[in-house]
């Protein structure tokens, strides 16, 4: 009985992240539009877009291979699994032991691997541009993420997100290293989600695109699945930051329905605040030059390294 309930809660989490992800995108677009003194589309617009895309026929380039057709599903699946393993409204869910933070990072790495390959499949220059830039940024963003994980794990004594979240609730401490890790994680999140100083999700300029360039040849249901995966990724990163640095209000495994509900409400609140702050930052900054991004993300790597070093050093006293 307990097992079935545990699996049920895990299932709810999986469905919930999937259901909320497009809404999060809609919310960020709405906030951005309001900040730019525009009305903006409805928050529900991404749902309508997805529906419209899946109903359309998919147009495939003549020389598209099986990889091009299957990659969207693999990208979606790996991202979804990763998103489902991040504690959102509740910590310590049944399957959260399946993968720790390093494995979640690597799962996103798998999604990126397939996306970059899909970008190269048709053989247009734009796909190549996107893939090559994406892999360049990833070469620094991934180690930065690992160093941030190190920092967090050294404080909390675990790379398991549930354990980390519970540790942070129980021993809420202000640590220099955690501050550094937070800044680093924000930089990584902006990079990974193709947000403004690194990439522009709203751009129409093919030559400046990163994420959009890779999916330029996708259409119909394939595009819908990839867009959904991108939305899931944004949700994942905001949830991740909330889970590590602001885990309060999160339900525990043995909490009742009420506790879970409180968890859900606070989680949605955190998502809204997180995405609002992100959009605020985006509005105030221009996109970087491509070769300034490695310095930006390299900064995150160094912050992670610095945080780890500080912890390694302070352990001795």
């Amino acid at each position: 009985m307990g097992l079935i309930l545990a699996i049920l809660v895990q299932g709810i989490q999986m469905v919930l992240v999937l259901a909320l992800a497009p809404g999060l995108i809609g919310f960020t677009r709405k906030v951005k539009a309001r900040l730019l003194r525009r009305q903006g589309p409805s928050i529900l617009q991404p749902y309508r877009d997805l529906l419209r895309l899946v109903r359309k026929e998919a147009v495939l380039a003549d020389n598209a291979s099986w990889l091009f057709r299957n990659a969207p599903y693999l990208i979606f699946a790996t991202t979804w699994v990763a998103a489902a393993l991040v504690p959102t409204f509740a910590a310590g869910l049944h399957f959260s032991w399946a993968a720790d933070l390093i494995a979640i990072t690597a799962l996103l790495g798998s999604a990126r691997f397939f996306l970059a390959l899909a970008g190269m499949d048709i053989g247009t220059s734009f796909g190549g541009i996107g893939s090559s830039r994406e892999m360049l940024f990833a070469t620094l963003a991934e180690p930065a993420m690992i160093m941030i994980v190190f920092t967090v794990a050294l404080v909390a004594g675990s790379t398991q997100l549930s354990t980390v979240a519970e540790f942070m609730v129980d021993h809420s401490t202000l640590r220099v290293s955690l501050g550094l890790a937070l800044i680093g994680l924000i930089i990584v999140a902006l990079t990974e989600n193709a947000r403004v100083p690194v990439d522009n999700p709203a751009t129409h300029l093919e030559l400046t695109m990163v994420h959009e360039a890779m999916i330029l040849e996708y259409s119909g249901r394939h595009l819908a699945v990839i867009e959904l995966a991108a939305a899931l990724k944004l949700l994942l990163y905001i949830s991740l930051i909330a889970c590590i640095f602001a885990p309060w209000g999160m339900a525990r495994q043995d909490d009742g329905v009420l506790g879970m509900l409180v968890g859900v409400v606070t989680w949605v609140g955190k998502l809204a605040i997180g995405s609002f702050l992100m959009v605020l930052f985006e509005t105030a900054i221009a996109k970087m030059r491509v070769f300034r991004v490695p310095e930006f993300v390299g900064g995150a790597l160094m912050l992670g390294l610095l945080g780890t070093l500080l912890l390694f050093v302070s352990r001795s006293f």
Partner: peptide, 11 residues
Amino acid sequence: SRAVRRAPPWD
């Protein structure tokens, strides 16, 4: 939709 159409690349 399961429909697929083959076409030259967009580019």
